[in-house]
Design a protein around this nucleic acid. Structure first.
Lengths: 336, 336
DNA sequence: GGGTGCTTTGCAAGCGCTTGCAAAATGCGG
DNA sequence: CCGCATTTTGCAAGCGCTTGCAAAGCACCC
């Protein structure tokens, strides 16, 4: 079994000749502690190798220095890039990270255990979250931030990127290249970002006086496999589209596979553009043109907003929208 | 601020007319509780929406149901696949996951805080870990499992895959295809798995009476960029190798890029094989032949071994080696 | 030298839970 | 129906920490 004996504030207190509450106050950066005392305590603590017991601290009503992160899963590029940004920011702020995975579609019924868990706050990076979940969070005044999710009531802080705008630009770019029949592979229809991307696509078409053709629009799920199948359908149309806009990079890769299977070349025979700019996009072949979401940035910002809540600096929920950027690489080409 | 009021065992105890310690025992699956009492308590707890306060439980000496995972970072395919396996197994066993990132090379000086943190046990998925770190873990009898790491003293449980064997097979496969000049892109030389893969490569060559040529062996770091540069060097040799074996898939993708930049085709002009079989390998172009490590499996097994330790079922450290498997896809071709 | 108004420190209680120990129930044989 | 061995239960202490409250120090003034 695990040995638990460790240096406690009592030990530190004894060693530095003060009371344990003074030690506690020093450790928590409390005011009203004489500077000389503070130094003395800090030194002995350091010397004795004191390390705070976070569960005790948390139990007693203090902060646990743990932030929870709810994500759909651990092995998806998009989520990982954001998580990585979160992790970096958290590390810098001296917080630990607790990860709760929650597969798409699986009821997120664990709010309660999370709230009663060690986390001081929660970052939700799950696109489809039941509103009951959010209600609980708000009702208990549990600090949280939403990523890639719109809160219709605007009662929770959230971070999104300009999905509409990005999709609009991507589509416009294809149009400017001369494409007129542009296939669209959507994401999960219930998800806000997916809806926005579709809207952006449609808007760009109509702004350029192009009627959009329902048969060119495929409903997807942000995954490789379905995008692959959807692309096959697109390719079966006559005439097939001369370009495809996939709602995320993963789907774009699915499209790539389908296109290649037909013996077609990207971008010579068909142009392809994605959304996200996950790391793979820049090392695929051909390198994928895509709409970049500032993924790490989103994670970092989420942490900042959450910590601001924790420090009571910011009480009003904020809705932030980060701008996307068209990244042109090698997967699109002008129509001759 | 966060509202903390929650249902405690006292509430449950009162409501079901027993003492709080009885409730505690029921909740912990203790023997010596009358079946009828158990049922009654369980029911009221359920009804009242009781959820255990893990920090309190852990403070009081119980289990926290949290496992710590130390990984280099959050956005790398190989690590994520394993982590994903860990997460699934943990979820199934009703444990939560605490993630500690620890960039390659950065001193892992946080053992102490982890040990004093909420984790009941620790999985270390960091290839380069200072032995002082391990010493602390062992000294404190803190349950832990190593992944992809050899413990020379065999005092810690560890999980590895057959790196030597896998590299041997990959190389032999290339040889059987007629290749004689096979470039090798290594991993971080200090890391055991990297060493084993190099050994496997060399052994395969010498078993086939091929002298190995130092200029064909490049020292890498498992990353895309360096592999790209190393591949350029390889390609500059005269004659260049007709095949390249990269120590991991990420490096293989770096090689792909370099090869393509020369206007060469894979596998027509040059064959390429990787190691790991991360998800991208099967959707790249061409699809990458590689040596599959059972990544998820490794994660799952790590959890099992750790939980066995926690339940004191297994006290002897175990060293497990999982077998790799050659996965032949489209990136290798016989020499004409 | 005593009073006043700070600043600094210490004590005690309590966060929600586990667990050793002792007390209460229960069962069984006689 | 009693005594004794077991099975169940309850009590108290304690895990390491925060924090309200009160006591102690201290500087300064009259």
């Amino acid at each position: 079994m695990r040995d638990k004996r460790a240096v406690t504030i009592f030990d530190v207190a004894r060693a530095s000749g003060v009371s344990y509450s003074t030690v506690s106050r020093v450790l928590n950066g409390f005011a009203f502690v004489k500077e000389s005392t503070r130094q003395k305590v800090l030194n002995t603590a350091e010397k004795m190798g004191y390390v705070a017991n976070l569960q005790a601290r948390s139990l007693a009503g203090g902060k646990s220095q743990v932030i929870g992160l709810v994500i759909p899963n651990l092995d998806e590029g998009y989520v990982n890039s954001i998580s990585s940004g979160i992790d970096e920011a958290l590390t810098k702020a001296n917080y630990d990270l607790m990860i709760y995975t929650n597969k798409y579609g699986k009821e997120a019924k664990y709010v309660n255990s999370i709230i009663h868990g060690p986390s001081d706050g929660l970052i939700l990076l799950v696109p489809l979250i039941p509103s009951s979940y959010l209600d609980t969070l708000r009702h208990k005044h549990f600090p949280h931030v939403l990523i890639d999710q719109i809160d219709p009531s605007a009662q929770s802080s959230s971070i999104n990127s300009s999905n509409f705008q990005g999709a609009y630009e991507a589509t416009s770019y294809l149009i400017s290249l001369g494409h007129r029949r542009i296939g669209f592979i959507g994401g999960i229809p219930e998800i806000h970002s997916a809806q926005e991307r579709l809207k952006g696509y449609k808007q760009a078409l109509s702004d350029h006086q192009l009627a959009w053709d329902e048969s060119l629009i495929q409903t997807g799920n942000f995954q490789h496999q379905l995008a692959y199948e959807n692309s096959q359908k697109l390719l079966n149309l006559s005439p097939p589209p001369s370009a495809i806009f996939a709602s995320n990079d993963l789907s774009a890769f699915g499209a790539m596979e389908a296109i290649r299977e037909r013996g077609l070349n990207i971008p010579e025979d068909i142009s392809l553009i994605g959304f996200d700019d996950i790391p793979q996009a820049s090392i695929s072949y051909p390198k994928l043109s895509t709409v970049r979401q500032p993924l790490k940035e989103m994670g970092k910002l989420a942490v900042e907003m959450l910590l601001a809540q924790l420090e009571q600096k910011q009480s009003q929920p904020q809705q932030v929208i980060l701008t996307t950027k068209l990244v042109i690489r090698d997967s699109c080409k002008g129509l001759i």
